[in-house]
Structure formats: structure tokens, C-alpha cells
């Protein structure tokens, strides 16, 4: 920021510009938001928008190149995979899986992490010590290894992936919420609410919660991106979401043996994945700058 807000202890400050308007002036947020909206629309409308059935195999049209290659055609804009399925249609249906995993995992992780963080930050003392130990333990565990081991044993499927990711990605929620709640609850307005006879429940819901919601949303968008990356890594190793589901990680794993023949099989799914995660991170950055200025995440 090259411009600073007017600060003076006793002149009427600049009227705070609405959050929404400030967000719309944040280039990263706008780009990320539009991108994310695009993915959501594609995912929701995949059945209507996809030019082909994402599961229809055909030996005669295997490994068609994308349209910009020498032998490409508009029928299969992004070509076909080793089973002759339309790549673009699979990519579109894959967005559905990616978003479902991202949203559900981040929600579960957020529920676990925020609960722990809020309790630790509000009650402090022994509660905080126990929860902090829990956070340290979680951080010390190699999450990916544990996730792989659990998936190997527990089997595969979208909801198991969500369960595993949700129960490993909560640490940042807990850390951020703990600090944020600690800061807020030491402020004088919480003191004033206590002095006014408010119960813990009322203080947490009415005084603390509205002031740490921003922190939650910021972490949520980052962790949704992390969930997409982690799910892709699991799929890439062959665990988690199983064929013939059009998961992007799985598509890259399937394309790996054809790296020399048709590198687009890996490149295109990777680009889609990257754009989605980028969108989520940009939205996160935007929310951070608008909702929680001055915080580091």
C-alpha cells in the first residue's frame, strides 16, 4: 500500500468504505473471484456444458491431440485420453470433484480447527496448554504419510478422502483462530461485556465471533486450495478417488506413461488444478487484505 489511511485520534476519520467496495478494488481478489466463479459454474453445469460423456470409452479415438496440435480437431477440443474419453469433458466433471473435496475438507477441518482454536484462545490456561500440545502433535505428524496409510487400509472414495483431509488440515485454523481469539478477548469491549454480566456463550457468539469470522474465511480459502493439492497428490499415487472417476490427479497419473507421446495429458489437468488453487489463494489474499488488515498468514 502506498497510500495510508488518515489517522488522527480525534478528527472524524475517513468514512470507512464498504468492505465489498474495497474487495472489488483489490485486483487479486477480483481475478481470483472471477476464476473461482468460473470453476464453480463449470462444475455445476458440467452435465449441460460438457461436449461428451466423460466416461464413454473408444479404442478408435485414443490419444487424440488437442485442437492446437497438427492433428487436432474441434470435436475433441482438448483431445482424448488413453481410453479414448473426451479430455475436456473429463476436466469439466473433474472440477466438480475438486470443488467438492476442497469445500467439504476445508469445512470439516475448519469445524475441528476453529473449535479447538476458539476454546484455547478464549479460556487459555490449562485448556490452551492441552490444545497447543494437540496442535504441536498434529504439526509433527507427516500428514501425507498418515493419509496414505489410512487410505490404504480404509479403502477409497470421495468421502473417505474428505474425512482424511479434513482431519489432517485443521492445524492452521486452530493456530490462527487461537491467536485471533486471544487478541480479541483481551480487548476492552470483551471486558465491558463481562462487566455487564454477559455469559461466556453470549461473549463468544456476540463479541468474539463477529470479529474473528474474517480470519476464518481467510484460512478457509487457503485450506480449500491445500485440500485440492493434497487430494491431487493422493490421486496421483493411486489412492483416494478411483478410476474411472475424472479426478484431475488421477488424470495426471494416467497420463504419466504417455508423457513422451502426449504431454498435454499432464499439462492440461495440471493447469486446471493450478488455476483453481491460484483462484482460492488469491481470494484468500484478498480477504486477508480486506477483512484482517495487518495480519500475516
Amino acid at each position: 500500500m502506498t497510500e495510508t489511511q488518515v489517522t488522527a485520534t480525534d478528527s472524524i476519520g475517513v468514512r470507512p468504505v464498504g468492505l465489498w467496495r474495497r474487495a472489488l478494488r483489490h485486483p487479486g481478489f477480483v481475478v481470483g473471484g472471477v476464476l473461482l466463479l468460473f470453476f464453480v459454474l463449470v462444475a455445476l453445469g458440467a452435465d449441460l456444458l460438457a461436449p461428451h460423456d466423460p466416461y464413454a470409452q473408444s479404442l478408435v479415438r485414443r490419444l487424440r491431440p488437442p485442437v492446437w496440435s497438427a492433428n487436432g480437431s474441434w470435436t475433441f477440443i482438448l483431445g482424448t485420453d488413453p481410453f479414448g474419453r473426451d479430455y475436456l469433458s473429463r476436466l469439466m466433471h473433474g472440477a466438480r470433484i475438486a470443488l467438492a473435496v476442497a469445500f467439504a475438507s476445508a469445512l470439516l477441518a475448519g469445524a475441528i480447527g476453529a473449535t479447538l482454536g476458539v476454546l484455547a484462545g478464549y479460556f487459555r490456561g490449562r485448556v490452551d496448554q492441552v490444545i497447543s500440545l494437540l496442535i504441536s502433535t498434529r504439526l509433527a505428524l507427516p500428514a501425507l504419510l498418515v493419509a496414505l496409510a489410512v487410505l490404504q487400509v480404509a479403502g477409497s472414495g470421495l468421502w473417505i478422502v474428505v474425512l482424511v483431509l479434513g482431519s489432517t488440515l485443521w492445524d492452521r485454523f486452530a493456530v490462527v483462530m487461537r491467536t485471533a481469539v486471544m487478541q480479541v478477548s483481551s480487548l476492552d469491549y470483551v471486558m465491558a461485556a463481562r462487566a455487564a454480566g454477559a455469559s461466556h456463550g453470549r461473549i463468544m457468539t456476540r463479541e468474539v465471533a463477529p470479529n474473528v469470522l474474517g480470519h476464518f474465511l481467510v484460512v478457509f480459502s487457503y485450506e480449500a486450495g491445500q485440500a485440492v493439492l493434497a487430494a491431487a497428490a493422493l490421486s496421483f499415487l493411486g489412492l483416494g478417488i478411483q478410476a474411472p472417476q475424472p479426478s484431475w490427479g488421477l488424470m495426471m497419473a494416467e497420463g504419466r506413461s504417455w508423457l513422451l507421446v502426449n504431454p498435454w495429458l499432464i499439462a492440461n489437468a495440471g493447469v486446471a488444478l493450478m488455476l483453481l488453487v491460484l483462484a482460492m489463494n488469491l481470494v484468500g489474499d484478498g480477504l486477508r487484505d480486506v477483512l484482517t488488515p495487518g495480519e500475516r498468514f
Binding site: L187, D188, Y189, M191, A192, A195, E207, P210
Partner: peptide, 12 residues
């Protein structure tokens, strides 16, 4: 009832 020092942190 209390009145605190910092007018910036005493109101939600």
C-alpha cells in the same frame, strides 16, 4: 460498571 481508557478497543 466500567469506563476504560482506550476508546478504540472499548467498543465492538
Amino acid at each position: 460498571q466500567p469506563v476504560f481508557q482506550d476508546p478504540y478497543s472499548s467498543l465492538n
